[in-house]
Amino acid sequence: MNSSNLLSIITFVYGLAAFLYIASLVFKRSLPGKLASVVLLTGAIGNAAGIILRWQESYKLGIGHAPLSNLYESLVFFALTIAVFYLIIERKYKNRIIGSFIAPLAFLTMAYASLSPNISDQIQPLLPALKSNWLIAHVIACFIGYSAFALAFGISLVYLIKQNRKEDSDSILGRLPSVNVLNELNYQLIMFGFLFLTVGIITGAVWANSAWGRYWGWDPKETWSLITWFVYATLLHARMMRGWDGKRIAYLSIVGFMAVLFTYFGVNYLPGLHSYGSQ
């Protein structure tokens, strides 16, 4: 079995986990929820194994490089970080309900990587510009940041849904964590994500400086990562200094994640060229 096959299977494992989380939420049973955690953990382990396997395969092909060099590989890594982050939060807050919103994100990410006809899962040789340790640091930092933002996005959705309904301890919403916990969690994740986004942008700049002699060139991908950074900086100041309430913060968090998605996918449809990520 090669890594692409393994990772396609993981897509279905994540799908199953998402299904179980949602089933547990809808039918108000805890058993599918417990199962879901086990399945998601299995998926994450398989996902990590797939990445390691792919790394070895690239060496066997004689073009060895860390599996973080194209869109497929970055999506696979993104799915792993989402799953791992979520599992940590699940353990810490002992609440599985948020899983119904996050596990589907991991599933969709993997499904997009494995099934989209536009994304090649071939192991490709590295273009000269991509041969840099800064690039590896850059990709890892960015995707850790993005996954924290993805989780904050899921939590913001939950927050808004819960905010807009009346409390009712028997309903699904009643069993969600309290709005205060969600609000705090959202904020913590965004601070975490912001630190990593910052490190990601900085390592990217250092890499660009070592490859092209300029640390900033206003190319669309760079600019969009800066736009994302501005949105989250706004959010942090609004909350720290102006005490914005949970609702407005949740909206900003959603806007921020849209900017993340655009930085990641949308930029490829804009005019201009960023040698990394377009395929």
Binding site: W218, F230, T234
Partner: peptide
């Protein structure tokens, strides 16, 4: 005022889009 910084940060985010399109 922090209101000013929030407005400026949002304006920078919004106008930066032009140069990417």
């Amino acid at each position: 005022s922090v209101k000013l910084s929030i407005s400026l940060l949002l304006s920078l985010a919004a106008t930066s889009i032009i140069g990417t399109v």
